Deep mutational scan, measured.
Amino acid sequence: SRSVIRSIIKSSKLNIDHKDYLLDLLNDVKGSKDLKEFHKMLTAILA
């Protein structure tokens, strides 16, 4: 869910600018399909 993804971003080791950017992107995501794609992208970034 959106709140879980937000929590993953906030607890990541990324610097604050990257976190803010990803949180802004997350706010722009519409629909469950796009949310799944965003989660895939985030997982790849944090891997």
Rank of each mutant, 00 (worst) to 15 (best):
S1H: 13
S1W: 15
S1K: 11
S1T: 12
S3K: 11
S3C: 09
V4W: 08
V4Q: 12
V4A: 13
I5Y: 06
I5M: 09
R6P: 01
R6E: 13
R6K: 10
S7K: 13
S7V: 07
I8Q: 06
I8H: 03
I8P: 00
I8A: 06
I8W: 06
I9E: 00
K10H: 08
K10T: 09
K10R: 11
K10N: 09
S11G: 10
S12T: 03
S12V: 03
S12A: 06
K13E: 06
K13V: 08
K13A: 11
L14N: 01
L14W: 02
I16N: 12
I16R: 14
D17R: 14
H18D: 10
H18Y: 12
H18R: 08
K19S: 02
K19L: 04
K19D: 01
D20Y: 15
D20W: 15
D20K: 15
Y21N: 05
Y21K: 08
L22T: 00
L22M: 04
L23V: 04
L23M: 07
L23C: 03
D24H: 14
D24R: 15
D24W: 15
L25P: 00
L25M: 12
L25F: 04
L26M: 04
L26Y: 02
L26K: 01
N27L: 07
N27T: 05
N27A: 12
D28R: 15
V29M: 08
V29A: 06
V29P: 03
V29Q: 05
V29T: 09
K30N: 07
K30I: 08
K30T: 08
K30S: 08
K30F: 06
K30V: 10
K33A: 11
K33G: 07
D34N: 13
L35C: 03
L35M: 08
L35N: 01
K36T: 08
E37D: 08
E37W: 15
F38C: 01
F38A: 00
H39F: 15
H39W: 15
K40N: 08
K40C: 04
K40S: 09
M41W: 14
M41R: 09
L42S: 00
L42Y: 03
L42R: 00
A44G: 09
A44D: 07
L46M: 07
L46G: 02
L46Q: 02
L46P: 00
L46D: 01
L46F: 06
A47I: 09
A47Y: 11
A47D: 08
